[in-house]
Design a protein around this nucleic acid. Structure first.
Lengths: 232, 232
DNA sequence: CTTTAGGGCTAGGGTTAA
DNA sequence: TTTAACCCTAGCCCTAAA
């Protein structure tokens, strides 16, 4: 086109690196606007920064860091080079809490045909999860500043309707009511996520059922991104 | 970011189109709440609907100057049929020719007993939502697999019925009933994970994905007998 | 309080120039 | 052919305004 393709200079690259160190990846506009870096990056758009970082990153294989918000402390995820200044970084505890392995065996007894039934159960889990997937506005409570000690319950309307007919007007609300009947939904959401993860693995083995895999993935992604998946 | 973007499925888009045809543009929350569309849009917020409509509307005016990959067999432009809301547009878009209703008991509409009917509706919802999540590969791929003689093509699409007894109120009842059926799943939450692991053994039975419906039905029947299958 | 309209931003795929 | 720079757009977020 009419664009000579402006190659990146070393100064620009360094400014980008420093900007990422300060603001974190994904904050391209902030980096570009930052008076500290703008003198070097004024001729680049935020998109350019993003693209450049992508190009720089392909030549720097690094351990994939956890999904981490910018956070007050800087991070050093997949920084291509240099970036001397790094911080300790408290490493926000990933929800990786190792759930106690199931030691219970009582449940197995009721299954006449373990195999088939189990498979059916997998499907059923997924179906239920899809039915009861709620979006939660949990948002970035990890925000840059003012750490909020009091964690608000982000779960929407857990109406403890008990016995009465659900007053819900929509399927969602009805499902929410259903969720309310199960105690400690959050813990269960974790269990569900694990189950789906496992199901994904299982499905992968059965190469044929890629549709199932698709579903499992989708559900799992939703879990991963903060949506609480409740199954009642 | 921790947000894997959730791409819109064809079913969701169609539901949105139908919703706009029914409620008009700008009534995003109404569309989302409408029991007719909620089964397809439950995972989308009203904001999402608005944004999606914006995206859909922007790719209407003209042929792409760029090389546009035409979807084989795709008929209509990816455009909402009528942008203006005022157009009456009585009959929502017919998306599917064979509107084969579910072959099982879900068709029974006359049952005044909330429980039974609700269960049927639950089943119906399950199927619908599973279909939705499966991102049905557009008919084309349907015939590839050996058809099960005992199995009809149960793929329902968006039901624009309006006249049929179905979703409106009974959906809520169905959800409530579903909640009741799994009320005390409390202790069974671990069973899920265990069952999934168990499923690994049978994963090699590369079953036809179409059998999902059968499995769903099986589970449904089990629930009907009072068995609590799973919950996580 | 909830909801909508609109602008802004990013991620990822795609395209072009070298 | 490969690669860096650039383009396009879906999806999502933020804010003001009703």
């Amino acid at each position: 086109m009419g664009n000579p393709k402006q190659k990146w200079t070393a100064e620009e690259e360094e400014a980008l690196r420093a900007g990422v160190a300060k603001h974190g990846t994904g904050k391209w506009k902030n980096i570009q606007r930052d008076p500290e870096f703008n003198p070097f990056l004024f001729s680049r758009s935020n998109i350019d920064l993003k693209d450049k970082w992508r190009n720089m990153s392909v030549s720097a294989p690094r351990e994939k860091s956890r999904t981490l918000k910018p956070k007050a402390g800087s991070d050093a995820p997949a920084v291509p080079l240099s970036t001397p200044q790094t911080s300790a970084l408290p490493a926000a505890v990933p929800i990786d809490a190792s759930a106690d392995p199931i030691t219970d065996e009582s449940a197995r007894s009721s299954a006449p045909k373990p195999g088939c039934n189990a498979k059916a159960v997998v499907h059923y889990i997924m179906i239920l999860q899809v039915q009861n997937c709620f979006k939660v506005k949990e948002d970035a409570s990890l925000g840059t500043k003012t750490p909020n000690p009091k964690q608000k319950d982000t779960r929407p309307k857990l109406l403890h309707s008990t016995n009465d007919v659900s007053p819900a007007d929509t399927v969602q609300e009805a499902a929410a009511a259903a969720a309310g009947q199960v105690a400690d939904a959050e813990n269960k959401s974790f269990v569900a996520a694990e189950a789906v993860k496992e199901a994904e693995r299982v499905s992968r083995m059965a190469e044929d059922t890629d549709s199932l895999l698709q579903l499992a993935k989708e559900i799992f992604e939703r879990c991963s991104r903060g949506e609480i998946v409740v199954v009642a």
